[in-house]
Amino acid sequence: MLSSYLTLAAILFCIGLYGTLAKRNAIIVLLSLELMLNAVNLNLIAFSKYGAIPSLTGQLFSIFTITVAAAEAAIAVAILIALFRARGTVLVDAFNRMRR
């Protein structure tokens, strides 16, 4: 049963990785990042039930991850709004001033 959960988490992580790499809209990139974080959470909770030493610590760590992810989402949306004010777009390939 554990390997089913791990496979599901791997699928989710790879979908998130693809979205992060290939999407041009910054909000969708952020959503894909959240998807990857959720895949990690699923792994933590699956190991907390089916791992070698089952304990509640995995669930606790996933709560920590959720908290950090919430802070990350708030900061990211704030940066996105500031960037939109400065550049007038949310497409990630428009944010290339430091490359020039």
């Binding site: 952020l30 959720n38 959470n41 909770i45 996933s62 959720i66 989402a73 949306v77």
Partner: peptide, 25 residues
């Protein structure tokens, strides 16, 4: 997976807060 508290945190934070934050964005 017997993680009821994390499930409700997930509904509150992700399905509630993060989704609404993204829609705000």
């Amino acid at each position: 997976l017997d993680a009821e508290f994390v499930a409700f945190v997930q509904v509150l934070i992700y399905a509630g807060a993060v989704s609404i934050l993204m829609i705000f964005g």
